[in-house]
């Protein structure tokens, strides 16, 4: 096996392992911290795929933003003492069955479908091309996205005010 392949399997293992921790851990603090491994692992996978910009965005937004938000929410809504009981899970068996079937079907589809192949696989910096596309072909979605973010900003501020009127 090549060196790169080994690295890929390592990263995939870290990603999936910590994702499993997120899904199965009984302690919500562990879950939240395992999310870090998943996000970082996904960022590494993006790097493997030559998507430097997306990887950077992943680190900045997921690790730097969303994860911190989630940790804040966990800390704010739990007394540390009873973290164990608040993360209860119900209906594990039927869920495992359904999800297992689902995964096996997905994998089957992935293996059987004849995916289209690109003529050549390039590793080049993508940031400037993404920037160009954002301001040309995807200008409208881009502007809409900024609107959505603004709405989310205001919404979050309004929702989380202390004096919630009944």
């Amino acid at each position: 096996m090549e060196f790169a392949t080994v690295i890929f399997y390592l990263i995939a293992a870290v990603t999936i392992g910590s994702a499993a921790m997120v899904a199965f851990s009984r302690n919500i603090i562990y879950s939240a911290f395992s999310l870090l491994g998943t996000f970082a692992g996904v960022a590494a996978i993006y790097v493997f795929l030559g998507a430097d910009f997306v990887a950077a965005v992943q680190v900045l937004i997921y690790v730097g933003g969303i994860l911190v938000l989630i940790l804040f929410a966990v800390m704010l809504t739990h007394r540390i003492a009873d973290v164990q009981i608040t993360n209860r899970a119900v209906g594990r068996i039927p869920a495992l069955v359904v999800v297992g079937v689902f995964l096996s079907l997905l994998v089957q589809i992935i293996r059987e479908t004849p995916w289209q192949k690109a003529k050549e696989i390039v590793y080049a910096p993508t940031t400037s091309r993404i920037g160009d596309l954002f301001l040309e072909n995807y200008l409208l979605p881009f502007e809409l996205a900024s609107l959505v973010l603004l709405a989310a900003l205001i919404g979050a501020a309004v929702l989380s005010r202390k004096e919630l009127k009944e």
């Binding site: 039927p94 359904v98 079937v101 689902f102 079907l105 089957q108 589809i109 059987e112």
Partner: peptide, 16 residues
């Protein structure tokens, strides 16, 4: 969620 998932599964099986 189970209902949605069941429907999706059904669709996938039918397709496959």
């Amino acid at each position: 969620l189970y209902v949605i998932l069941g429907a999706v599964l059904l669709a996938m099986i039918v397709k496959l």
